[in-house]
Design a protein around this nucleic acid. Sequence first.
DNA 1: TAGTGGTCTAGACCACACG
DNA 2: GTGTGGTCTAGACCACTAC
Lengths: 243, 243
Amino acid sequence: MSPNTPKHVDISEKLRSEIDAGIYEPGDKLPSEFDLGQRFDVSRTTIRRAIADLTRQGLVTTYQGKGCFVAQSEKVNFSLASPLIYFDAELKRQNLDGSIKSIRFECIEAPKDIVRRLKLSADHSRVYWQEKVIYAGEESIALDITYYRQSIGDLLGDQLQSGFTYYTLARNGFKPHSAEVRVECALANFQLSECLGVPLGLPLFVYNYVATDQDGMPFVCGKTLTRSDRTCFSVKIGDGSVE
Amino acid sequence: MSPNTPKHVDISEKLRSEIDAGIYEPGDKLPSEFDLGQRFDVSRTTIRRAIADLTRQGLVTTYQGKGCFVAQSEKVNFSLASPLIYFDAELKRQNLDGSIKSIRFECIEAPKDIVRRLKLSADHSRVYWQEKVIYAGEESIALDITYYRQSIGDLLGDQLQSGFTYYTLARNGFKPHSAEVRVECALANFQLSECLGVPLGLPLFVYNYVATDQDGMPFVCGKTLTRSDRTCFSVKIGDGSVE
DNA sequence: TAGTGGTCTAGACCACACG
DNA sequence: GTGTGGTCTAGACCACTAC
């Protein structure tokens, strides 16, 4: 081990290499924090620091009272060539069983940034605000926060609360013509970690989007927070068109 | 929301709200860990845990011996409509002063995954391997790891080590016709954190790309690790170019 | 020299899982 | 009840920065 690296770094790198090498396989339980402390001859605090790093990187998952287990997660790949309201279509394309849990659907006075993004006028500044958790199989993948123009929410409220956004909109003639997307990164705060069932501090992709109809009018916008340990984004550039 | 949030969460959320509210402005120094411990009536360990969360989220930066300061970060926005070897062009478009520091340039036997991505044949499996740090102004933005086909490295070695990839390639007739891109997320390990001068565990975008010439032959691939606290990615979908 | 953050220890109490 | 991870404390030593 390097002379000047902190112990917790040496330890997390060592554990990572052992996981990579297959000494611990996906699903395996790691030794307890106490035992690891004995093995590396350090305090439990130092072991916990090392394991926290691995947890944030999605390599291991800890369960209180049970132990620390090696995670295995193939990442779900989302194409950036279509707005993320096609989430369901993307999941299906990868043979994953997508489902949603709607946790909020209400008509509110739009916040300022939403007024701007949806190009609302002062006298029509109410929107429907939906929040839902998206699952692939049993596991949560994302938290989606969507703002619909009021007319859409009035019309499609029931359907939007029970099904995926894209199918509902498309079935009713709302097909996006274009979309603007911006991808950032954030860390799960306490609220998000509880909502998604992920560790505090897990990195999340923040996928911001505004979808526009054929007349250039934005009709839906929002952001989707996806677990970075379970998702990635891809795009093909050039060839005359974005694919 | 939850009845019993950990103290370190309460504290980091409180500090975050004070930063958001402008009580601490960008560049301001936070009270010392000792003083914060007195204010919140907790141990220094708990304060450090709270500050570590803020650090990873890019809200504050700590300097040993000096203190903890509120960071200011406007994010650099990269378009996903062009391969990231256009990094320099993107920086210029945003009036940023881009520069590079080449830290490795050598001809090596290509690793297996590079053989595959560049579609190399068994008897022409050597590539040039370049690593460089990219700066916007004084601040490091990204670590770029690029693999060139041997013929390109032989021809353009000197230029590639001193300038940005895109201009060098374009000036010599190597214009990418298409590119495949995949964006993931990783956390800075010890080596990366030292190389980029960022805190251990800072989230990074991992931008993987393969660029192909007009004959469909890949000629350069690699990955760019960009600081997620300083960069984001955007793309415009549709407007006729996509189904 | 004094103050700051970086690391680490030893030990405590709690909540949860399992037999 | 025993073992596990989750949280927190009090204190130590070090390296770096400023004066």
